[in-house]
């Protein structure tokens, strides 16, 4: 039993197959919503699945002048990191499969590993577009990482815990959104930056650098990266819902809250023009200052009021 449990946890539920399916479904919801906002019908429900399956069947081209081990290994690393995070977050309203004090920090850094491996994959190719894409990915990572982390740590401070489950329970009785609105907005936008969604899609700006870091990937590599991103999206949404939107206690909570967040994300995606990379960086500098300001206020006032 002791062995079977973790295997199930890792391969099927909550990580593994389950989160992949949820990820693909959320990817479809996102695409469908954006299409609707753009006055289009949008893709069919199985579209992301068909895309991924097709990519797995495609020929995998490893370009010349590329380290094949990294080329193949990096997507797997990204997916592994993303799947690992799924073990620690309260998916579908259930407690994370594993938890320990400080798992919030681990999750945030595992999410960064996804981005890092994307950037490494970009710099591992001969294509100039990939290289610029990788540079932009890293630039963006460094600019949003700090505010994003700060924004997620806000709830942790008021809950007096670095453990996701504890914060989740605490959030069940306190809508942190109301006391830390700035943190919430920045966490949500930070997630968009992480996922490289418009308007923060400069790293894969189609009209400038084709597909950024992923330009040279075809077939499996591309599919795995897409899956990693899908999982990252689900995990990110869950985290924000758990931390800011009154916690996640049951499946209805989970779906309602994450889907509402996704609706917001899709709306933001279709409202804005792509930011130039230096505009993105500037934006995040202000965001970081804002979160810090919120922290100061929390620390000064919060000792009495919030705890």
């Amino acid at each position: 039993m002791n062995i079977l449990g973790p295997i199930i946890n890792v391969l099927f539920f909550p990580a593994g197959l389950f989160v992949l399916i949820i990820g693909l479904a959320y990817l479809w919801v996102d695409r469908k919503l954006v299409a609707q906002f753009q006055n289009r019908i949008g893709p069919r429900w199985f579209q992301p699945l068909a895309d991924v399956v097709k990519l797995f069947f495609k020929e995998e081209v490893v370009p010349d002048g590329v380290d094949a081990r990294f080329f193949v290994g990096l997507p797997i690393l990204a997916l592994a990191a993303a799947l690992t995070t799924a073990l620690y977050v309260p998916l579908v309203g259930l407690q994370g499969a594993y938890n320990f004090p400080g798992d919030l920090i681990v999750v945030v850094y595992l999410l960064s590993v996804v981005t890092m491996s994307l950037a490494l994959a970009g710099s591992n190719t001969a294509s100039r577009f990939s290289l610029i894409g990788a540079t932009r990915t890293l630039t963006q990572l460094f600019s949003y990482e700090a505010p994003f982390l700060l924004a997620l740590l806000g709830p942790a401070i008021v809950a007096h815990s670095w453990q996701i489950n504890t914060i989740n329970t605490y959030a069940g009785t306190h809508w942190i959104l109301l006391t830390q609105p700035i943190g919430f907005v920045i966490a949500l936008v930070g997630l968009m930056g992480k996922l490289e969604l418009p308007p923060f899609d400069a790293p894969e700006a189609e009209t400038e650098i084709v597909a950024g870091a992923m330009t040279d990937y075809s077939g499996r590599g591309l599919a795995i990266f897409q899956l990693a991103k899908a999982v990252e999206m689900v995990v990110g949404l869950t985290l924000i819902a758990a931390l800011y939107l009154g916690g996640i206690g049951n499946p209805i909570d989970f779906f309602a809250k994450t889907l509402i967040l996704l609706l917001f994300l899709a709306g933001l995606q279709s409202l804005f023009t792509r930011f130039r990379i230096e505009q993105t960086v500037k934006w995040w500098r202000y965001a970081a200052l804002l979160v810090l300001a919120q922290w100061v206020i929390m620390v000064v006032l919060g000792q009495g009021v919030l705890s």
């Binding site: 019908i41 893709p43 068909a50 189609e206 009209t207 992923m214």
Partner: peptide, 15 residues
């Protein structure tokens, strides 16, 4: 709206 049929216009020939 060709996306209804799953068609996406890609930028990179590799995709």
């Amino acid at each position: 709206d060709l996306e209804r049929f799953g068609v996406i216009l890609q930028g990179s020939p590799r995709h």
